[in-house]
């Protein structure tokens, strides 16, 4: 009991240290550069306390739930030896976590506005909604595909950079053919798909698989799933812009 309490306090202290730089930056810029007072000090203090508490709980919770479950499921799949189910799981995980991602929904709506202002689609609500919806599903599909492909890579032991570098080349080639309005959105979409919830689970899956399969090293083979998930959306979104 005593140890658990200690660990929690340790984590709480760590969270304070992690968040200190943000408050220092905000304070210094607000007071010394913009030369303004900090508004609503009370709100700020409550917010800061919430952030510290939230970060502490989140990290503790992850170590108890998503991390172990990702790894035990990876072991179970490796033991079961059913490649098809494992790939289905990988795809579902990538697709399911991305389709509902709030950051992606925001970016898709923004993109629909750009497209409609640029005259690519009609200037009606219906057309915009269709466009945003299509974009979201394109990205979700591409992340599902990325995790599936990344899992296949871990199983086969392909070196990561032989796959990522051609991906970069693909992005560059697509850039020359995609409409100019979509390029910024496409480049950004890679970063917004991998959220705080998805990253730990996908990392645990990759590392678990790489340690369960003989001849794979969790360090060299276990990482890289997120890299695929941030690369494929760029290519797929540019393709979406070209088709429409």
């Amino acid at each position: 009991m005593f140890q658990i309490k200690n660990k929690f306090l340790n984590q709480l202290f760590g969270s304070c240290l992690d968040l200190l730089p943000i408050f220092v930056v905000v304070f210094v810029f607000q007071v010394f550069i913009l030369r303004q007072a900090i508004p609503n000090i009370g709100d700020m203090a409550v917010g800061a306390a919430f952030v510290v508490l939230g970060l502490t709980l989140f990290i503790q919770g992850l170590e108890k739930s998503l991390f172990p479950i990702g790894e035990t499921m990876a072991y179970a799949f490796a033991k079961k030896g059913s490649l098809l189910w494992l790939l289905a799981f990988a795809f579902a995980l990538g697709f399911g976590t991305t389709a509902a991602e709030p950051a992606l929904i925001a970016v898709a709506n923004e993109a629909a506005r750009v497209a409609s202002d640029g005259g690519i689609i009609e200037q009606s609500e219906q057309a915009k909604n269709d466009y945003a919806f299509g974009l979201r599903f394109t990205v979700a599909f591409s992340v599902g595909f990325a995790i599936l492909f990344g899992v296949l890579r871990i199983i086969r032991g392909w070196p990561l950079h032989y796959l990522i570098i051609p991906g970069y080349v693909g992005v560059v080639i697509m850039t020359f053919f995609a409409p100019a309005t979509i390029i910024g959105i496409a480049y950004d979409s890679g970063g917004v798909t991998t959220s705080t919830m998805t990253v730990p689970l996908v990392t645990a899956l990759g590392v678990g698989l790489a340690s369960a399969i003989k001849g794979r090293n969790p360090m060299t083979d276990g990482f890289g799933l997120i890299a695929f998930a941030s690369l494929t959306p760029m290519i797929f979104v540019m393709a979406y812009g070209m088709v429409l």
Binding site: L57, F58, G61, S65, M197
Partner: peptide, 8 residues
């Protein structure tokens, strides 16, 4: 753990 994650 999940409850911690959600609350956190």
């Amino acid at each position: 753990g999940m409850a911690y994650v959600l609350l956190g």
